[in-house]
């Protein structure tokens, strides 16, 4: 397990280095010096960060999850973000706001999916994640236009706040 962890993080570091030094020479887009220095630094970085890049399992190496993420980003996330921005423009011009902080329970198991959900919430319609409860994985969300019917029961319905994002986050990184 230790060797696999090291290998994965070193490969990630090396790919990032190659990406940043494209077109530096003639040896298939890279020069020999860049390749050697990149390999040396990738080994050092892999040794230092192997416990941070890979936490428990290697499930994120599954290419289906990457495809799912791309599909989510372009089909679900970008349209929602466009709507959010038009909404913010409307509120900037009219100044009509009705804010509040609500608590939602998305029931996500691990940190990565919760991070994905929190960042999605921050960038989409009228919501901004403020605080996370690390014991129960509940999110506290600042909502710029609180709807009355969402406030009736105490574990707030997350469908009203952030739509289908928690389901997508569970599918991608669950």
């Amino acid at each position: 397990m230790k060797a696999i962890k090291f290998l994965v993080s070193a490969c990630v570091a090396f790919l990032l280095y190659l990406l940043l030094t494209t077109a530096s020479g003639s040896l298939f887009l890279w020069s020999r010096e860049e390749l050697i220095i990149g390999a040396v630094f990738a080994i050092i970085v892999g040794m230092v960060t192997k416990d941070m890049v890979v936490k428990k399992s290697l499930r994120m190496l599954d290419p289906r999850r990457a495809l799912l993420f791309v599909a989510y980003f372009f089909a679900v996330f970008l349209p929602a973000m466009a709507i959010a921005n038009v909404d913010v423009v409307y509120r900037v011009i009219t100044g009509r706001i009705n804010p509040g902080i609500v608590k939602i329970s998305p029931n996500l198991g691990n940190d990565l999916s919760l991070t994905l959900l929190a960042n999605s919430i921050t960038l989409t319609p009228g919501t901004l994640s403020v605080e996370v409860d690390e014991k129960t994985n509940d999110l506290y969300v600042h909502w710029i236009n609180v709807k009355k019917q969402a406030l009736e029961k105490m574990p707030r319905d997350y469908k009203a706040v952030c739509g289908s994002f928690p389901d997508w986050a569970r599918r991608i990184a669950g």
Binding site: P99, L128, H142, V146
Partner: peptide
């Protein structure tokens, strides 16, 4: 943005004109 919002709420900045504040 999340870091700033969290820090502001922990340092005691109340949301203005809020109708509900579960976090409080």
């Amino acid at each position: 943005a999340h870091a700033i919002a969290r820090a502001a709420h922990r340092s005691g900045v109340k949301p203005a004109r809020a109708v509900v504040d579960d976090l409080e």
